[in-house]
Design a binder for these strands. Structure first.
Lengths: 143, 143
DNA sequence: TAATAACCAAGTAATTAACTCAAGAATTAT
DNA sequence: ATAATTCTTGAGTTAATTACTTGGTTATTA
């Protein structure tokens, strides 16, 4: 799991579609204008989003992108993972200075932590973000 | 909130100290050897960790770094925020194409989401990760 | 057939990450 | 004192990634 502005762009674009999906297919030009993201960059992001099965596309006039599933069934985790290659949490693997003992412990721990964050984001849906329902999650206390 | 390998390096190094703090101050050379992170890069990271008040330092032989607080009172959020500049969730601010209306909605939503992730990481402490207690958090279900 | 809009492939500029080099200053041990 | 150790600082380098640009092509619709 990796969190960068690249992922934010993807989430922003997906939210834009979710907010405007009643108007039919949404063109990247429109998203580009509304969200201030370059068209070609969006093309690259949407190639990945499509490959991940999160959106479907239609060419030609009246074409554009649609959500493949309803917004309540698309998680933020999926969107971010579609565009952001995950951080390699195990760079130690194969390295001479990492023998899998205590030295490697922190690496596997980070890996677990990363999974935990991912599991957390799986429970926040696009619809939840649009509805601002995700703020409910803030109320949950841990530990 | 931003999640990159830079933050992972910082967390890894802090875990290394937490695991070895009974042996006194920990030198960066040792962490460098054990974790496979270059010494100079660690120097830069620890300059920030120290500035953030997470570690204290001692020079000379027998010197090194110590945790400023006990591990159960240092959150993963603090460590990551100390070294990783946060993603600017409001690049829209001041831009002509973002007028603060619906167009900007997704930006503030992302900002909220980022806060949510941060709040989540605030509840995972260094000690929790060392004890693997953080895996308990995986059991929590949302929504 | 003309306009639209997705698709595609290179390449480039800017930024950041990760590292290197080269000093210096404080502390401890001899 | 002297020497070894370790933090501290800053300037510079390399590599990777981000974000964007350019210039097309294909498919679809009016």
């Amino acid at each position: 799991m990796k969190l960068t502005s690249k992922g934010r762009y993807a989430v922003t674009a997906m939210i834009d579609i979710a907010l405007n999906q009643d108007k039919g297919a949404i063109t990247l030009s429109l998203i580009s204008e509304r969200q201030g993201i370059s068209l070609s960059y969006l093309e690259q992001l949407f190639a990945k989003l499509k490959k991940a099965g999160l959106v479907s596309s239609a060419r030609g006039p009246g074409g554009g992108y649609r959500l493949s599933r309803i917004a309540s069934e698309i998680s933020i985790s999926e969107i971010i993972r579609a565009v952001d290659e995950s951080v390699d949490a195990r760079k130690c693997a194969g390295k001479s200075n990492c023998r899998g003992g205590d030295e490697c412990l922190s690496h596997s721990l980070w890996s677990d932590l990363s999974d935990t964050i991912d599991a957390f984001l799986k429970n926040i849906t696009l619809q939840g973000v649009v509805d601002k329902n995700h703020t409910n999650l803030k109320e949950i206390t841990f530990g």
